[in-house]
């Protein structure tokens, strides 16, 4: 009761993912043609010629005619989105088979196993800071791996084409939260993707989280993983996604002086802001305010002082009243 976020909290359950897909398509229509790819490998042009467009025209060797067909929407790439991702510099055939350069593509190419994240990033000193091995260990404890094993690949959440290291690089908490939650939502609010690993339908998130006051505000300002993972201090982002029974359901964990958020959402950001703009500033500039987690020492001191003065004044007055009676 008395919750204000209920009305629009449905954005999580709504066909937002489907419409964002439509949005991509519109985006491609508007931007795809006008902007040329920035910083993308020139070798990719021949792939992107089809894989960024809605339609494809090819010479049909059987009918001997030019055929114009619709592209399979799942195989349309957002070029600009790709260009802003961590793998923007890669050639398509760095990961996909070089045989894809022939069209029509050989159907068996689909069976080729793609590299996993660790194939490239594992044991690489250049990426030591990211602790890929440790992430892998943590991930193997997670409910995702426990339930689905190896078929739950990194890419189920981390889209290789578009991935950005937001939680490390963004200075906007809201940005980090949005990016992170969209990863979860890409399956948890999208039945077709959800059923890649489950026979059930996606859970009704806004009902399940009905107990949470100001649901929408929470969803916009903290990540799902804040409550649904086990925080590991040495990792920037914890990857041990807990089964739902073990999710945190205790307001005070975040809404208190030693807020758990300091160890999770604000961890990396704190490291950055402490050196640059100071803690107070970073709290003030942050759009979200966590009840109880912010306590200004000076305000606390001043209020204790005022309280003591008031009580002392009253005590002295009481004593004087008794003596003079």
């Amino acid at each position: 009761m008395l919750k204000s976020g209920l009305t629009s909290a449905s954005s999580f359950n709504s066909p937002a993912m489907r419409s964002s897909f439509l949005f991509f398509i519109v985006l491609i229509l508007f931007l795809g043609f006008s902007k040329s790819s920035q910083a993308l490998a020139p070798e990719n042009e021949s792939c992107l010629k089809c894989h960024t467009h809605q339609t494809i025209t090819f010479h049909n060797t059987l009918t001997k005619r030019e055929d114009k067909r619709l592209m399979n929407p799942l195989y349309i790439l957002d070029k600009d989105h790709f260009a802003s991702g961590v793998h923007a510099k890669f050639k398509c055939i760095d990961c996909h088979s070089a045989d894809y350069s022939k069209y029509p593509h050989n159907a068996e190419l689909k069976l080729e196993p793609l590299s996993t994240c660790l194939d490239c990033h594992g044991g690489d000193a250049k990426y030591a800071a990211y602790q890929f091995e440790k992430i892998d260990l943590e991930f193997q404890k997670s409910v995702h791996f426990q339930k689905s094993g190896d078929s739950f690949t990194c890419s189920k959440c981390h889209n290789q084409h578009y991935y950005q290291a937001k939680s490390r690089n963004s200075s906007e908490v809201g940005d980090i939260v949005k990016f992170s939650n969209e990863m979860c939502m890409s399956c948890h609010s999208n039945n077709s993707k959800f059923q890649l690993i489950s026979d059930k339908l996606k859970p009704a998130l806004s009902q399940i989280h009905e107990w949470l006051p100001n649901q929408e505000l929470h969803f916009l300002n903290v990540r799902c993983i804040e409550c649904h993972t086990q925080v590991v201090d040495s990792l920037s982002v914890s990857h041990n996604i807990l089964p739902k029974e073990k999710a945190l359901k205790n307001c005070v964990e975040c809404h208190s002086k030693n807020s758990m958020l300091e160890a999770s959402l604000y961890k990396y950001k704190n490291l950055q802001s402490r050196s640059k703009i100071g803690k107070l500033n970073s709290i003030i500039k942050n759009k979200s305010y966590v009840i109880g987690a912010y306590q200004n020492i000076w305000l606390n001191y001043i209020s204790i002082l005022i309280l003591i003065l008031a009580l002392a004044g009253i005590s002295i007055h009481v004593i004087a009243r008794i003596i003079k009676k």
């Binding site: 006051p213 205790n250 307001c251 005070v252 964990e253 809404h255 002086k257 030693n258 109880g292």
Partner: peptide, 22 residues
């Protein structure tokens, strides 16, 4: 609501929020 911590609280946080609203 302002001063509770996981170790110390006067009452259930959720209850405090609801009562405070009402």
């Amino acid at each position: 609501m302002q001063y509770a911590t996981p170790g110390f609280k006067l009452m259930d946080f959720e209850l405090a929020v609801n009562l405070h609203n009402i």
